[in-house]
Every structure is written in structure tokens, then in C-alpha cells.
Design a protein around this nucleic acid. Structure first.
Lengths: 210, 210
DNA sequence: GCAAGAAATTTCAGGCTCTGCAATCTTTTA
DNA sequence: TAAAAGATTGCAGAGCCTGAAATTTCTTGC
């Protein structure tokens, strides 16, 4: 049976077998991204991707449940984000804690600048994928919201979901903006700016003084 | 050729032909929703839905590009939302204007309470659909953001996208909350409360005084 | 009322996605 | 090195979705 490789406790090196699996997965991700960037989502079949990596298409589906998932890759899980949340200083508000966790994420993404710019380029021409950016999709959002609620100590009237959904949306916007600027500015900086605006209540930006 | 029926200027009644088309579309929407609520997304095929309405499955695809789209129905277009935006009083901030437009939306949804509660129930067990709730998906979000930017009078450093994305996310959360409360509270009220929180900068809610 | 003409539906063929299952090949481990 | 565990593969099949051509249904002008 093929099972997702659990990173274990970062110690214990994986062994040849698991290393190969990681390699194959990375190769599939890479090929999917490259091909789709070239030819568009509809112009690439799963068979194309599998062939580029020299495995059967059946094997592709052993690694990813769908073509889209290969393009999205193996994003930071909501579990990881939740951990960061609970690790954040207790004094911070939920919004601040989320901002911090996502700032870390930004720094991580920045270290893989080219891959992410390419991915965002693909997302641009396939907006349906965008919603799965970071802790992809509503399920992860729920999990993260639960962590926020717990951090806040229970009783929730929907605030946890709200602040979580809003934060993730804001993060997405920051990423798109980063992409639009061709990865020039610091993503973490953009995230910070975005969260400042959130914390300020999203007032209209002051028009530049003539 | 089958073309989406343009509502025209509300005058000029549609004529039998177009009325039938509307009927078929509504019937497909309804059947899709009902069946999927009963058996789950995977438990219903397009053929099932078409059969329930007594048309061919090819005809189904003349009305909806995918099974999911039938479930989502025919939501308020981002064009309509954009209109509301430009119609909003000039003095309002972007966030306030969006809040107003979405409040209207809430009232509209409230008038179709049962249908929407059923739809949200389906969304709950199929979170992948959730992202398309209201002005579904990233494309509509872009259009709406453009309207926001224009309203604000041009120069945009990403604020328009941010406030738009955040507002839509907030609206989604309000809807889910409304569903969770079984449609009891006023949706418009929940939307108002949500936008108040946004405008206040999402401060942690004060713990109840013991 | 009736004959074009327009429009919607249907049938058909076909490609692609994704899944379960059984066979095969490879790696690990004893 | 043999047995066990695990990964890959081929195969069959269901389901989604599309284009094109044929058919049926509606509309319109006479």
C-alpha cells in the first residue's frame, strides 16, 4: 500500500524507499506545474504528466487524487498552521496570532520564490485553483478555526471562523499582489501591511496629497 | 442555439419559449439539490438529475457546465453586486458599501430560506463547493474588486482586492453561521454584526463578565 | 392555418478523469 | 537468500463533459 510519507520527528532519515517516493512526488509536482504553465490546464492530461516522469498514469493517482492537486503541490497543512498558532505568545489577539503564523508561511514561500511565482502564474489563468491556496479549501479552514477557538479558550459565537476566514483571504490577496509585482517586494512585508489594514478596520486609504 | 436568458429590462414578458427554459433550469437546479441532499454528491450522477426532470443528460449540460454548477444554482452575478456598489451613497467607505450590497443579498436569500438552508446543508458535507458561494469564485471576486477600485476613484495598491476578498469571506462565514443556527436569526443581522467586527479591526471578543 | 426559419433537444462518438482489483516487480528484513 | 512488505502497473469500468449532426418543437409572417 502506498501511504503518505509522514515526516516523522525530522530525525531518522527516511531510507532509500521513502526517499524515492518523495522524489517521485516532487517530480510529478514539478512536471505538472511546468507543463500546465506551458500549455494550460486543459492542454495537459494526467498521462502527459505521468509520462514526463516516466511512471504510469495509475501511479500518478497513487500520489495525487487529481490533476489539480499535483499543481497545488503539498502545501503547509492546517495542522502545521494550528501548531504555530498555539505556539504564539499568549498575549496576542487571534488576528495577531494568525498574522504571525501566516507571516512565517510567507517567509517559507519566499525561500521557494521561483516555484511559487510559477504556481501563481498558473493560478492566474485558472482561478478555480485559487481557493485552495494555503491550507487549501474549506476543510482546512475549519480545522484552523477550531485551533483559533481553542486558543481563545472556548466559547465561540463565530468569531473564530470569521477571523480565520478573513485572515486566509487576506493572505491570498497578499500573495496575488506579490505575484503581480513579480516577487519583487518581500512577501512577509506585504502580509504585514495587509494585517495592519485588517487590524485598523480596513479604512479607505487616504488619497495621496497632491 | 441555447442562450442564457437575459432578464431584459423586467418589462417585456419572456414568451412561452423562454419561460419553458427558465422552468427547465429551475427544475434541474431543484432536482440536483434535492437528490444530492439525499444521497450525497457522489451518489448522484448527472444522468440521475436529468432523468428526474425528464430530459437527456446532454440537455443538462446545455444548462449547466457541470454537476456542481447545478447545485450552486444561478447566484447573484458579480455584475449585479457591482451595480449595487456604484449605487451606494458616495460617502460610504468601501467596506461600508460592500456591507450594504451584501446586506441586500442577505435579504434576498432570506426570502428563499428553505432552498438556501438545503443548499448550505449540501455545502456542509461538500466543502469544495463552499468557495463558490456568492459571486462564486475568484473570477467574480476580481470583477467586484474592479468595481470597488473604480468607485474609490482609481489608484489601487491592492486595497480594493483586499476589502473585496475579505468582505466576501466574511459574508460566507455569516451564511454558515446562519445555517448552523438553522436559519433562526436574521441573516441580514448576522451580516451587519460581521461587518461591524470587520470595521472594528476584528478585536478579540470580550469574555463575558462572570 | 401553414410553411419557412429559428431554437432547443436529442443521439452519438469519443476523450479524459478517477477508482478498484489483481498481477507483477522491488525493496526490506529476518 | 527467502519471505514479507510495499510500490507500480495494466485492465476494466463508471462517470464527466464536449462537439457535431440529426431531430423535434416553437415562432413568425403570410
Amino acid at each position: 500500500m502506498l501511504v503518505v510519507v509522514t515526516p516523522v520527528e525530522s530525525s531518522e532519515k527516511p531510507g532509500r524507499r521513502d526517499r524515492k517516493k518523495l522524489e517521485t512526488r516532487a517530480a510529478l509536482e514539478h512536471a505538472a506545474l511546468r507543463l500546465v504553465a506551458e500549455r494550460g490546464l486543459a492542454g495537459v492530461t494526467v498521462e502527459d504528466i505521468a509520462e514526463a516522469v516516466d511512471v504510469s498514469s495509475r501511479t500518478f493517482f497513487n500520489y495525487f487524487p487529481s490533476k489539480e492537486d499535483a499543481i497545488i503541490g503539498t502545501p503547509t497543512s492546517e495542522v502545521e498552521l494550528s501548531k504555530r498558532l498555539t505556539a504564539a505568545p499568549a498575549g496576542l489577539s487571534a488576528l495577531q496570532a494568525l498574522g504571525l503564523a501566516l507571516r512565517e508561511e510567507a517567509e517559507l514561500i519566499q525561500t521557494q520564490r521561483d516555484k511559487w511565482l510559477l504556481r501563481l502564474k498558473v493560478f492566474e489563468s485558472n482561478p478555480s485553483l485559487l481557493s485552495r491556496l494555503v491550507a487549501g479549501g474549506a476543510e482546512a479552514e475549519r480545522g484552523l478555526a477550531a485551533a483559533v477557538a481553542e486558543r481563545a479558550g472556548g466559547a465561540d459565537d463565530g468569531f473564530a471562523h470569521l477571523v480565520t476566514a478573513v485572515s486566509l483571504a487576506a493572505f491570498r490577496v497578499a500573495m496575488v499582489r506579490w505575484y503581480a509585482a513579480d516577487g519583487g517586494p518581500s512577501l512577509a512585508g506585504l502580509v504585514d501591511q495587509t494585517f495592519s489594514r485588517l487590524a485598523a478596520g480596513l479604512p479607505d486609504p487616504a488619497p495621496l496629497p497632491s
